[in-house]
Each structure stands twice: as C-alpha cells, then as structure tokens.
Nucleic acid binder design. Structure first.
Length: 633
RNA sequence: GGGCUCGUAGCUCAGCUGGAUAGAGCACCUCCCUUCUAAGGAGGCGGUCUCAGGUUCGAAUCCUGACGGGCUCACCA
C-alpha cells in the first residue's frame, strides 16, 4: 500500500511538484488516534516546492492519489498531514491473504545467507544465573527471528571449559572437599547435588580460602616478615605502604586493594592453580582426568537447566580445543608482523593507531588468554561452515571493548568475514540499589534453576486460583503451570530493549498481570476457546468493518514488516511490544463486539476469521521469543 | 583520568530513519461479569522527556557542553 503510493508519487513527480523528488521525502506514519484515517503522509517536505499552504498541498496530493488508487476511499488534511481512509475491501483482502498463509509474516526458509548465533557460552566452574537467563533467551530468540527472516541459522556456544578459573575449582575440590567413610570426596552421586552446583560450591570455596591466605600474607608483610617472597613484590609492597602516608580514606582504600592483589599473587593457592593450568596445557594425565570428571558433572547439570529454559544448540565449540587453533594463529601472526613479542616472551598486538591499547594475545608462560581462544574459535567456525556469512555473539555489554578488539584483530589477520561478525551487546541484569552486584565468587547470584522453579510455583498458585483447569489431567496442569511461569519469565526479560540494563528485584515475584507473558497467553487461550465453541467457520464475505476490526487488521498487516525490523535490529523486544499492542486491540474488540451471538452470519464469520488470525499471529510472535501459548488457561 | 553507554509519570518500560496535544503497564481512585475465559474492559490521577545551548518550518529523537548512573581500560574470563 505504502509502496504503491510512493511509486505513484515518484512516477508523477514532475507533474505534481514540477521537479523530480527524492524518495526519502515521502514519509508515512500511523494516523493519530483522534484523527480519522488509516495511513498518514507527511506533507511538510513538499510545501516549499509547491509554494502553497500545507493544507492546499495536502488537498492537491490527496485528490491526485485518490483518483489513481482505488483503495483510497477518502482523505482529509489536518495541518501538514494527509490522512487516507482506506476502503474496507482492502482490509478484508489482507485478512483473506493472511488467513490462507499459515506462516504469515515469515520469509521463505533458507532464502538468505547462513548466520551463526552464539549464546549462553557458560564457564564450566559455576551454575547458570539470572544473567545467563537473559543471555539464553535473547540468543535463542534472535536465532529464531533470523530464521523467520529466511536465514539459515546455526545456534552455537563456546564452552568456557579451560583456564585459570576452572583450575581454581578443581584445586579447591582436591584440597577442601571432605572425604566420606568410603574415602571419596564429594560428587554429585554421593551428595545428590546437581553437578554444576557442586563445582560452583568449590569455586566459591577457593575464593574464600584464597582471601584468608592473602590476608595472612599481608599480616606477615606488615610485621616485616619477607622471607620466601620475591624481591620485586617486597619492593612494590613497601612503595605502596609508604604512599599511604597522608592520603585520605578513599585513596588509602585504593592502595590497600592494590596491596591485596599483590598478596593474592603470592598465595600458594593461586600459584598452585597456575601450575595446574600449565600442567593442563601440557596434558598432564592426572590433571586431565580431574578436569574431565568435573566438567562432565557440570555438563550434566547444565543439561537440566537448558531443558528447563527451553533452548537448544546445533553445534558446540570448546575452548579446550579452539585455544590451540588460536595459538597457531598467533604464531602465524608473529611471523607476518601482525603481533610482536616482548622481552619476557609475552605476545601482543599494537592497536594504538586505531585509538585502542596494546593487547595481550599470549602470556609470557606461553599459555593462552581469552582473546587467543576467541581468535581460534572464530577461525574454526568459518572453517567448519564454508557457507557461513557471519557470526552474532550474544554477550553482555561489559565486553564491548573485547569484541571491538577481537573483530579488529581478525580483520588485521586478513579474514574478510571479520566485517560480518557482530556483537549483540545486551545490558546487565542488575539487582536493586543496596543489594550489590551479582558475583558468582561471592555467592550473591540469583540462581537460574531456583528462579525458574519459583516462577513456575507462583504461576501454579495463580492458575489454581483463577484458571480454567477443570477436567485437565495432572500432567497437563503441570505443563500449563510451566508454560505460564516460563512464559512470564521470558517475556519479562525480552520485552525490554536488549541494549538496556534490567533491574531485577528477586524479592518481588515477577508480575503476571498487565504487559506480561500470561496476559498475552490469556488472550490466545480465550480466542481458542471461542473458536472451539464456534465449531466451524465459514467463507469470508464482503462486509463492512467496525472501527475496532479495522484497527486490528491494520496492526496484523504490519506483522511481516515487524519481523524484518526485529531481524535487522536483533531485537525480540519489538516482537514482544507488537504482540502486546495486538492483544490490547483484540481485547478491546472482544469487549465491544459480540461474536458468537451475532445474528448476521457473514459478520460472525468475519469476526471468527479475524480472531483466528489474531490467535495465529500471537502464537507465531510468541514462538519467536520462545514463549509457548496454551489452548486453555 | 581516557573510551563506551544510559538518563521519558512514584516504579518498570514504549516512543521507528526528526513530525500533530509524549504513550503503556504497575501502584492509587471510580465503574463493568444473565456476550463468547474478569489473568479482561472503560474512566480518573500522575510529565519542565536530567539541565543548558545549538541545527530546523518542526527536537524526547540530531550536535556540543554540564550534571548524575553503569561498563571498560588485567599476563581475569
């Protein structure tokens, strides 16, 4: 419709305006609620060239278009806005088209380039938390939205299964796990704990013991006991101590933190963990066995969590494999001069010309860092999928700088695909003021499994109170509680623009009224109930439309465009907000108009077909954000 | 300190590439179940779009600066 108007204006530009106008001057917008009309053309851009008032310009353009286009029933001009009233037959035709298309709004499958969406990417030393929920729901949804746009999509993750942090929990388990009467340390089997929770427990334990030891070292230093510590640490300690003189409280605090870091680096625990990492990279059999065992516990735990979240993956990548590829890339880059080696053996890239810093890509002890493996992983992926066009990395915005650097290095290494890699950067999930930050090490996280369980419980409570669940089996009821609870949680985390942070108060349960998942699910269930009662729906005939009906049709016909926008912007929030609008329009209609008791069969039919397509669009939209919709609730 | 980013109603958020009198939900106050699911609907209350300049016929939206929050600048990931 918009395109047709645009085309007519462009073709007749000389006649209308005296010159050939630019396409971007033709701007449409939705007509204001209090003005009659279905579509509005902004007239201001044409006023100057027509040398008449905005009203006259609008009249001229309006009558010209009305003559050419049959779907324009009437038009009016209010100040600089030309409002078209579109014929009912046009909207009924739209309804007919969407009704015939079960995949209304979706593009042809695999008609666009292959994309990879990376999300989740957990560390294997701790359980998933609230932040991961946002990440997983977002990544999953964006992948589904891209599929709906016709892309072939590979869902993937990079499993953070190696590194110093993994060694920390391994070491802590070896050192601090109690031993039972059979001489065994704690395992998921003998404790009944989910594997990831058990390993996470030891990660926290490491940090605790590590801090105790660091504090003891500081104590020793303050007492002048420096035996056994390296010279440079002692010198640095004394320098920092002296610099505290006559500083205010804040500055002193900062210096104390630096001293703490210094001491941490001298703890036997950290030194042992580092040694363990070197052994691991050298494939020491004992360390490798421990690593394999503990990681498998974690994977079994994660499986439970992913299943509850309702997300899936097509292909997994492991850092324990790709870091090697990364190291090879670094070797190659050293030879061609992309990287350089410092005296201590560490390898760097100089990005100061790009306004960034020097960045480490390999430690002096030869072990890999985060960047090393990310280079390797990207290379590996394009190698595995020759038709791969680009990668979308779903990672929090705290890593904005990392990805800027990563893509730049890949480009400098000469990979042309680097320009098609993008960082889907989302805002942190924060706790309300005064509750601090979520830190796994400090145990101040909202656990993903616990949260999902809580929300399903509260959905159960609400459903038992007001749901239509009589006659349902226990199994179906439980499934419904899960659908509603998880729907509420997903919608809550996805309705906000991904770029923005979310403040989450764990003490307040997630709202299930208003702009929420269950509100949308409810409308779907209600329509389904209506359609069940209607039994059969007849052919669509030419009838005249109520205002409420036309509003819904206008909104429905925007759905294909919306999916495209959501794909372009990598934003499930657009889908969520669209669905919410649709549901509000429908509920208004539902209240204002009778459907089953309508005596005019043709009208009744049209309303049922309309309802059917609203339900379908809700279901399809919700599917794209990972939310299921029930037939009854 | 450098870089990035955010600041819209008491709270949580929409406001597309600049367009008409800035919109929802929650909370608070009224109404509406002998029409199909009231997890619903109708109405009320609530705003200097952080502030100050600038660009423009027109700015919540673009530019500059200030103030306030967040992230980041690791041989952590």
């Amino acid at each position: 419709m918009e395109n047709q108007i645009k085309q007519i204006l462009l073709e007749n530009s000389e006649a209308l305006f005296g010159i050939q106008i630019e396409e971007k001057l033709i701007q449409f917008q939705n007509t204001r609620k209090d003005v009659e009309g279905d579509l509005t053309l902004v007239i201001f851009p044409f006023v100057k060239m027509l040398k008449v008032s905005p009203i006259d310009a609008g009249e001229k353009i309006g009558s010209f278009l009305q003559e050419k286009l049959s779907f324009i029933d009437k038009f009016n001009v209010v100040s600089g806005f030309l409002n078209f009233i579109i014929a009912d037959s046009h909207w009924l035709n739209e309804l007919k088209n969407m009704d015939e298309n079960p995949k209304f709004g979706y593009s042809t499958e695999n008609s666009k380039p292959t994309l990879m969406v990376e999300y989740s990417s957990p560390n294997t030393n701790k359980p998933l938390h609230l932040g991961h929920l946002r990440n997983n729901f977002l990544g999953y949804s964006v992948a589904e939205i891209l599929k709906a746009n016709g892309h072939k999509v590979v869902k993937t993750q990079i499993v953070n299964d190696r590194g110093i942090h993994i060694c920390k929990s391994m070491l802590a388990w070896e050192r601090f796990s109690p031993v039972n009467e059979n001489g065994e340390r704690e395992t998921p089997g003998n404790t009944g704990m989910q594997g990831d929770k058990l390993v996470g427990k030891y990660y926290v334990e490491f940090d605790k013991q590590f801090n105790i030891e660091a504090n003891e070292i500081i104590q020793q230093w303050e007492n002048g006991e420096f035996n056994g510590f390296p010279e440079d640490s002692i010198v640095e300690f004394n320098r920092l101590q002296d610099s505290k003189v006559e500083k205010d409280e804040k500055a002193t605090k900062g210096i104390d933190a630096k001293i703490k870091d210094l001491a941490k680096n001298q703890t036997s625990l950290l030194l042992d963990a580092k040694e363990m990492l070197i052994k691991w990279e050298a494939r020491d059999p004992e360390v490798y066995l421990l690593w394999t065992t503990m990681n498998n516990w974690v994977y079994q735990g994660f499986d439970v969590t992913y299943k509850a979240m309702g997300v899936d993956f097509d292909k997994l990548y492991y850092e324990s494999e790709t870091f090697i590829i990364g190291k090879e890339l670094v070797e190659k880059g050293l030879k061609d001069g992309t990287f350089f080696r410092k005296e201590d053996g560490s390898v760097w890239i100089d990005l100061t010309d790009e306004g960034l810093d020097e960045k480490l890509v390999l430690r002096s002890d030869g072990t890999a860092v985060y960047m090393t493996q990310d280079l390797g992983t990207a290379f590996d992926r394009f190698n595995d999928y020759p038709d791969l066009d680009g990668i979308i990395y779903t990672v929090g915005n705290e890593q904005d700088y990392h990805f800027k650097v990563l893509f730049l290095i890949l480009k400098k290494l000469g990979f042309s695909w680097a320009q098609n890699c993008s960082h889907l950067s989302y805002g942190m999930v924060e706790l309300p003021k005064g509750m601090g930050r979520m830190k796994s090490r400090e145990g101040t996280v909202v656990d993903a499994d616990d949260l999902m369980e809580d929300i399903v419980d509260s959905a159960k409570e609400m459903t038992q109170e007001r749901g239509h669940i009589e006659g349902m089996s226990e199994e179906d009821k439980n499934e419904l509680y899960r659908t509603i609870g998880m729907g509420g949680l997903k919608y809550y985390l996805l309705k906000v623009d991904p770029k923005k942070k979310i403040v989450f108060n764990p003490n307040e349960s997630i709202e299930l009224n208003g702009n929420t998942g269950p509100f949308i699910q409810y409308t779907h269930a209600r329509i389904k109930s209506l359609l069940r009662k209607a039994e059969n729906v007849g052919e669509l005939k030419d009838v005249s439309l109520h205002h409420e009906e036309k509003e819904i049709l206008k909104h429905l016909s925007m759905f294909p465009n919306l999916i495209e926008e959501a794909g372009k912007n990598h934003s499930p929030a657009l889908i969520a907000n669209y669905s919410y609008e649709l549901v509000k329009l429908y509920n208004h209609f539902y209240q204002a108009v009778t459907i089953l008791k309508e005596e005019n069969e043709e009208l009744k039919n049209m309303r049922l077909v309309l309802s059917r397509n609203v339900a379908k669009t809700i279901a399809q939209g919700m599917r794209l954000v990972g939310v299921n919709v029930p037939e009854k609730m």
